[in-house]
Design a protein around this nucleic acid. Structure first.
Lengths: 326, 326
DNA sequence: TTGAAAGCGTTACCAC
DNA sequence: GTGGTAACGCTTTCAA
């Protein structure tokens, strides 16, 4: 103990936390002793008293690059506030999710940020919940603080780009059934068409499952139509890339023969050939905002309980004017 | 406090930690009380006594997808041992790295896994160091426990594949200067050639900087040679993809007109067109092994101080027999 | 088999 | 301004 400094234990504590209360001399003495003994306050003891850990647990369903930027955002905001970030992933397993929540219950962390909860209803049904913020879930719910993104508006924007380029036959490759994301993105597509008085041709809505292969299959189905589209909005980048690949295999070029738009702005979108026009989800900002919400929650400050962040169009090289306009 | 269970504080503690010492009845009483009060032991208090946090800090230079699998490996091993994982990134900033090390010094975590240290020499020069494992650094050093990967052997294997396909004019696109990784991969390339009695044509070694663009530039330089190579081993996937792209722009096809080999097996390698043959770095295993080393370090158990993991060839579609053999 | 009590390193309250 | 001390919630001797 730093009482080898010849001073009382209380004084040392003050010197470290509220130096302004002390004599300059005493302060100096303490500082010297600290330096001499290479003394570091025990975080554990501080926690025992303060009942806080300055730790936030971020739980993701899977460790995909997509969540990396979210994490980066959380970390940025956390660091500024003196928090560190614990990471866990649930493997989309609801039991694991509950386990993590319990960890926080056991005061291993001050709060938990759930990036896309696996099973929100069960969670909110569990009597007590630690301070929780849900990020990126499509559907609101549970009355927990949320940070989300407007998939409908994003899809509408993307479709509008295609429409503004003069395309009138614009198809949509949907995501898997029963996914809220799929539903929202489809809705955005429909809205954009409706706003122009165009009606949705059911043949132009083909189902995929978010994989590259399903994109290839979808474009083949579209091409087999008596009157194929001239532009395609895919519900994610992978399927958009599949579409481009399918087109290329038939000797068709993007965007000369067909315009393509994706969604997500995954890393590969910028790297593929040609670079894909797509819709960016503000991942970093979602992470940052979620952490900021957490800080407010922890302080008991007033807060907006459902924050919706806008997406952003990323125009690259896969969308060109419609052929009759070119 | 669970002394509402009518028992002494010590008994409760025992019931939770060493139930075998107790009467079955008492044990039951405690369990009931625990359930009734939804009691959770305070981690903070436990730590104060035990002087450990059951936390491991993983520090990466940047938040790239590459480190994701490493993290997954660390987490897998950590979870099994009852540890949680804290994540930090240094932005390649040596001061930040020292900061994280200090965090551990302040007993916020029991140990630190440095995934590619920014500044190992400074660190080892800092008098005291917390339990530290270094993962993925190319050069050994500092006497710290290391988990590494054999870049030389990986590069040699890749080059040998090309050589075995009958190519005699095999070029290499190097990474940036002053990178240990670049040096090792170049060495592997040279070794493979030397083993066949081939000598290294300096024109066939062109410098890149690990970006797609530099790959395009490199392939252009190679193609401009009086006698261009028929196969290219690029020091990473990005440059390999750049090479493929450059080739395609000139109407050349891979692997028909040129064989290409990458290094790293990034996600994009499987997704690009055609899927890239490359060398996989066992990222998950590196993470797991590093954490296992950490566990040994913490226990003071005997351990190998420099573990080198093998790379793995991933044969996809970008390498074909040499033209005169086809 | 169980209970009492010391001690872990802080902070915060109250005296001096 | 500074020192004494209780309290935080646990583990771990030591006694009973």
């Amino acid at each position: 103990m730093a009482r080898a400094a010849g001073l009382s234990i209380a004084t040392v504590s003050r010197a470290l936390n509220r130096p302004e209360l002390l004599n300059e001399d005493t302060r100096r003495i303490v500082n010297e002793a600290v330096a001499r003994l290479d003394y570091r306050p025990s975080v554990a003891a501080k926690r025992l008293r303060g009942n806080r850990t300055d730790l936030i647990l971020v739980v993701v369903p899977s460790l995909s690059p997509f969540f990396l930027d979210i994490f980066a955002g959380v970390e940025a905001a956390a660091e500024r506030a003196g928090f560190s970030v614990l990471v866990g992933h649930t493997d989309r397993n609801s039991a694991r999710e509950r386990l993590f929540v319990d960890q926080v219950g056991a005061s291993r962390a001050d709060g938990i940020i759930l990036v896309t909860s696996v099973d929100l209803p069960t969670l909110t049904g569990m009597g007590w919940l630690p301070p929780t913020v849900v990020a990126l879930d499509v559907d609101g719910g549970g009355g927990l603080p949320m940070v989300r993104v407007d998939h409908v508006a994003g899809a509408e924007d993307a479709t509008n780009i295609l429409l503004n380029l003069g395309h009138t036959r614009v198809a949509h490759i949907l995501g898997p059934e029963r996914s809220g994301m799929t539903r929202h993105r489809l809705e955005g597509y429909q809205r954009a068409l409706a706003a122009r008085g165009l009606n949705v041709n059911p043949d132009y809505c083909v189902r995929g499952d978010f994989t590259v292969e399903s994109g290839v299959a979808a474009i083949n189905a579209l091409l087999a139509l008596p009157s194929p589209p001239t532009a395609v909005f895919a519900a994610n980048d992978q399927m958009a890339i599949g579409a481009i690949r399918g087109l290329r295999r038939r000797g068709l070029q993007v965007p000369r023969d067909m315009s393509i738009f994706g969604f997500d702005d995954e890393r590969i979108a910028a790297l593929c050939d040609p670079p894909l026009s797509t819709v960016r989800i503000p991942t970093f900002e979602i992470g940052r905002t979620a952490m900021e919400q957490m800080l407010r929650l922890l302080e008991g400050a007033a807060m907006e309980h459902d924050l919706v962040l806008p997406t952003e169009l990323v125009i690259r090289d896969t969308a060109a004017p419609a052929p009759d306009r070119a």
